[in-house]
Design a protein around this nucleic acid. Structure first.
Lengths: 202, 202, 202, 202
DNA sequence: GATGAATGAGTATTCATTCAT
DNA sequence: CATGAATGAATACTCATTCAT
């Protein structure tokens, strides 16, 4: 007698993956339970058997996505021992093309926009970004102690990094493919310069 | 008998305004022709009479929104003669709370996310951001000539300003109300520092 | 240009008639918009076009049924000039088999039972029975003035007549077909005896 | 190992009680196995395990209700030795407010209306009313022998009593609360007068 | 005795759209 | 210019029921 809950969890995950795929190709306004079920070769009511409501499913999806987003981000900050090198590498990763590719931008912004009408979704986003900022703050504090970055307000700097990163991610979609890479490099350099306080320390 | 086209244009605008309102409160997935018609106290077929298809209406809405977005932005860049002062003021305006309030964030990101599935919408966004960058580039070139900002690549700097601005706008929504103002100030200062090349000029 | 509202009214009536038929054969729990539409050879959404909600349709149906019920009842009280004869004839009609056949009993009791959960339905029933009692009261007052029936409290007597009539209607369904006629006669005689105060006048 | 059947019977009764409750608040059209299961904090399939079909459960419920109805009625006829007093008391009880409260009126009429489409339900009702009439007939025969009531046809009189009682029960719901008590008294007096043959005996 | 997975038909209602007026 | 009738496909969700465990 194995744990019966495991199977349900697996099914739920399977459903969310298919929901994600439908969402990516049809948007929130086109994603329906029927389409997900179709994609899975399963009866629509089965989906409701697991998430009793579409709203419940959406909220779960957001958490699922933000999990992916976050867990794609965090490891990059820790994997290198040398702090100096870590700063360079992490920044380079963050402002590269592929990293954000982990979550479809259409899906991501659809969910973000949903947060303005759905408090539970909003809360999920807030919590995720709070965690991100917290980790960044710790990191920057350690770097400041090591004299690698400016010892201004690390929390404020963390916020700036996030804003820059999201701004890069956003504006990237408006550029020609050829421009993206260089734009990323420029963003990275600017951020590092700010962190280092090289702009005069004012 | 006056020109009938004028009335039609007015009606169209009226419809778009109501569409925008419905969109803000219900999202793309909840916005329907019927709801717009209801809000206007008008028959749904009237709306189809003007925009023969929902897709047409959506595309028009995006243009309507981007127009507002753009025309809220541009004037701030021009209204002051003294270039030095202009830089400060424009930056302050851009990173203030109220300015982006002109377009509901939920609506804005819903439209942006739509762009990833709808080429016409994407094109509208791209054109708008191209115009923005162009104007910023001109501006920065003039300022560089006047020695106010760094004479690096003004186009690249323009891109960075846009990214920073959108990143600020995005992340703003994740902060506590009390934090926003100071965060905006910090973003502004950072951008100006970068523009001025105060981080070493490299 | 004829009145356009007439057509809608006609359609509504047509829908109610079909609803009634479905209700009679399937009960409240089996009556669905789809079945009505099917019966009419029409699209389900058309029904919602006229009654925007099922609840609305149910309420309308109750009124439609009570109208029939009432208008089958009232004429019988007035059509004869001679009061003495009128009493006899009306009583005979009321306690006969065919009269109540105008409204299917299954439907009638389903609606009545609905009244215990739906205030609007309850109100319709109450108003109908209030009108019935009012008319009966007038009638009995006139007869009392003519010395045909007891001059006790005519309103109370009217209530009793209604209760007797409904009790007959109810219990009729539990009898063998052969018994019904005689049972009706007995009810009629009893009621008349009571009205006449022949039971000792106390 | 005790008798397993006992537990099953208990569960069945528990289910019927919950079904009854759901029925009272949602009507036949709103009562579902899922809702009953929900109310019991139990899996829906458990209910089907006991009553293998919904129809079976409905039929059982009707019997359960009619049992309550009948067993609330019968004792009142027997508990007093003195026949004269028994008549008065029983009649008073029957036409009082509280007695019928044992079975929710909404539920009762819903079931009764169901009888017009479901032969098994109809049969249950008929059998119950046949038993009622039989008992009443016995009673009235005894009373007639004792000279307390008219010695006309006691079976016919029994039918009339039932009709009056159901009519009272039915019409009661259409009266203002304040009127009910007096209306009950009036019904009672009228019935007794008829039974006594005080209206001339004809 | 009881649960949970799964189904497939059915629910009311909404949708965008067409057409006649 | 505007309405109202009508459609047909789609919506999320509920239903009774079966089966395996």
């Amino acid at each position: 007698m194995a744990w019966p809950k495991e199977k349900a969890e697996k099914r739920k995950k399977e459903i969310l993956e298919n929901f994600y795929a439908v969402l990516a190709s049809e948007g929130l306004e086109g994603a329906s339970i029927a389409k997900i079920a179709d994609r899975m070769g399963v009866n629509p009511s089965l989906i409701i058997h697991y998430f009793s409501t579409k709203e419940e499913m959406v909220v779960s999806l957001v958490d699922y996505i933000l999990d992916r987003y976050e867990s794609a981000f965090l490891p990059r900050l820790r994997e290198i021992d040398d702090l100096e090198e870590r700063l360079e590498t992490a920044a380079k990763d963050i402002f590269s093309v592929d990293w954000a590719g982990l979550v479809d931008q259409g899906v991501f912004y659809a969910c973000y926009s949903l947060g303005f009408r759905n408090p539970r979704v909003r809360e999920s986003f807030r919590r995720m970004y709070d965690r991100l900022r917290e980790v960044l703050t710790e990191e920057l504090t350690a770097m400041a102690d090591a004299g690698i970055v400016s010892d201004g307000n690390p929390e404020k700097l963390a916020g700036l990094v996030i804003a820059m990163l999201e701004g890069y991610d956003f504006y990237r979609g408006m550029l020609d493919e050829g421009e993206v890479e260089e734009f990323g490099r420029f963003c990275k350099e600017s951020v590092i310069a700010i962190l280092r306080g090289q702009y005069g320390g004012r």
